[in-house]
Amino acid sequence: MHAPALSPPVNVASIAAAIAAISAVGLGLALSIPLLAFELHDRGVSSTWIGLNTAVGGLATIALAPFLPKLVRRIGAGPLLLVAILSAAVSLLAFKITPSFVLWFPLRFIFGAALCVLFVVSEFWINAASPNHRRGLVIGIYGTVLSMGFAGGPAILSLVGTQGWAPYLCGAAFFALAGIPVLIGAAGAPAIEEDHSGGGVWTLMRIAPAATLAAFIFGAVETGMINFLPLYGLRRGLDAGEAALLLTVAELGNVALQLPLGLLSDKVDRRRLLLGCGIIGVFGSFLIPHLAIDSWAMWIAAFFTTGIVAGLYTVGLALLGARFNGAALATANAAFVMLYSIGLTVGPTAVGGGMQLLDPHGFAWAIGAFLLLYVLVVAGQIWRDR
């Protein structure tokens, strides 16, 4: 790797465009995943099949992410983001008018591909704009905005409900609004260079396993949480609005904690911080089945567990940025998102299957098992590298 270069002056309109795009990603994921889960639940589809359908969005990212750097170089970040925003809005509306569950699979693939473009291109953008000495701070802000999008989705559901056209139209409208700053600022997007390093996903995992596995675990746990926490609430006696509100509380933990975790990551060993996040996540996940579903204790546990676990993404991305730069960072970032998406594919399937096997608490046991795996791997790596 080459010595890190000095960061260029920040183009505010350009950064605003990236922030708008990533807000759309968070909002689109957090609104669509529980909304579509509620829709399928109302149609009598099992939790396992709901998880499998959700996982198709991750497959779309896995298929598309390796080609995105080349697409951005050929098409440009701005036009590609606008096409993705339009595709996401149209496909979200199409779910409502598609009665056949079989057709939901190609629709989910299109929707997932659109979100993948928003996710990867915005993340290239943020990484290129992050000064090395304040990387944790910048990515903490990025994570906070992303988390605000995640929190906004279930908040909309709690306000407008999960029935009828209202939630679908709200989601499509937010995608459209995100296109405005993209139109204004995307011309200033950093260029993505050709990568001649030859490194791929497995090379990256060997060099920085704590960061890359964090992406996978976060994808599995966060998507499983968004998809099944509302259904978990329903099966423990909450109504649909209360279940969506519980998810909102959990996602507000992401909003509140990413900036402090990002700042902390600039001052301490990031691998040890990732280990601590994983340990707290394990404890919180295994605690949830023992708490009353409508209690303040449940809200507090959901808030801190979800917020700390989201630190795996924020701190993992900062650790990745500290290890790579230039074109290698762009390639590493694509691999990071791919691993996140593999988690997005595996997580809902495993959590849905766990919930079906041990109804309803298999939801929490499955999430805790993912986090326990991460803790064991990172602890082993730190022990070997002492």
Results as ranks from 00 to 15, higher is better:
residue 297 A to I: 03
residue 278 G to D: 08
residue 301 A to M: 13
residue 319 L to D: 13
residue 359 D to Q: 12
residue 349 T to I: 15
residue 351 V to N: 06
residue 284 G to C: 14
residue 353 G to V: 04
residue 367 I to V: 13
residue 373 L to F: 14
residue 357 L to I: 03
residue 286 F to D: 02
residue 321 G to D: 08
residue 363 F to H: 00
residue 334 A to N: 10
residue 298 M to H: 03
residue 355 M to A: 07
residue 362 G to N: 06
residue 277 C to Y: 07
residue 322 A to W: 03
residue 337 V to R: 01
residue 276 G to Y: 10
residue 361 H to Q: 14
residue 302 A to Q: 00
residue 287 L to D: 00
residue 345 T to D: 02
residue 352 G to M: 09
residue 304 F to G: 05
residue 307 G to C: 06
residue 293 I to D: 01
residue 352 G to R: 09
residue 341 S to N: 14
residue 314 T to Q: 10
residue 279 I to Q: 02
residue 367 I to M: 14
residue 352 G to K: 09
residue 300 I to R: 08
residue 359 D to N: 15
residue 365 W to N: 05
residue 366 A to Q: 06
residue 276 G to D: 11
residue 291 L to Y: 05
residue 358 L to C: 06
residue 323 R to G: 02
residue 348 P to W: 08
residue 306 T to N: 12
residue 322 A to P: 00
residue 371 L to M: 14
residue 344 L to S: 06
residue 286 F to A: 05
residue 377 V to T: 12
residue 324 F to K: 07
residue 287 L to Y: 01
residue 318 A to D: 07
residue 273 L to N: 09
residue 352 G to A: 11
residue 291 L to E: 08
residue 279 I to D: 02
residue 332 A to T: 09
residue 306 T to R: 07
residue 317 L to Y: 12
residue 269 D to W: 01
residue 310 A to Y: 13
residue 288 I to H: 01
residue 346 V to G: 09
residue 322 A to N: 15
residue 292 A to M: 09
residue 366 A to F: 03
residue 299 W to D: 13
residue 334 A to E: 12
residue 335 A to K: 00
residue 324 F to P: 03
residue 346 V to P: 08
residue 310 A to T: 12
residue 361 H to T: 12
residue 325 N to G: 13
residue 314 T to M: 15
residue 282 V to P: 04
residue 290 H to I: 00
residue 360 P to C: 04
residue 289 P to S: 08
residue 276 G to R: 12
residue 310 A to W: 10
residue 295 S to G: 11
residue 318 A to Y: 04
residue 347 G to K: 03
residue 363 F to M: 02
residue 297 A to K: 06
residue 321 G to Y: 09
residue 281 G to L: 08
residue 351 V to I: 13
residue 323 R to F: 06
residue 348 P to H: 10
residue 318 A to M: 05
residue 269 D to I: 00
residue 325 N to C: 13
residue 282 V to W: 04
residue 292 A to R: 06
residue 330 A to C: 09
residue 312 L to R: 04
residue 340 Y to D: 00
residue 329 L to Q: 12
residue 367 I to N: 11
residue 324 F to R: 10
residue 358 L to I: 14
residue 291 L to V: 08
residue 333 N to I: 14
residue 332 A to D: 10
residue 335 A to D: 07
residue 343 G to W: 03
residue 272 R to I: 01
residue 363 F to K: 01
residue 319 L to M: 10
residue 306 T to V: 15
residue 306 T to I: 12
residue 273 L to K: 12
residue 355 M to D: 09
residue 339 L to H: 04
residue 370 F to K: 05
residue 357 L to V: 03
residue 296 W to L: 15
residue 304 F to L: 13
residue 303 F to R: 04
residue 374 Y to W: 10
residue 333 N to R: 02
residue 311 G to R: 11
residue 278 G to S: 10
residue 336 F to K: 04
residue 344 L to I: 05
residue 362 G to Y: 01
residue 332 A to M: 11
residue 351 V to Q: 03
residue 267 K to M: 13
residue 272 R to F: 12
residue 287 L to H: 03
residue 341 S to F: 01
residue 278 G to A: 11
residue 369 A to G: 11
residue 268 V to E: 03
residue 362 G to D: 06
residue 291 L to W: 07
residue 310 A to P: 00
residue 371 L to E: 13
residue 338 M to F: 09
residue 310 A to C: 08
residue 297 A to L: 15
residue 377 V to N: 06
residue 275 L to E: 05
residue 315 V to G: 10
residue 311 G to W: 11
residue 284 G to A: 15
residue 277 C to T: 11
residue 279 I to W: 03
residue 374 Y to P: 00
residue 324 F to E: 04
residue 356 Q to E: 15
residue 357 L to C: 00
residue 330 A to E: 12
residue 327 A to K: 09
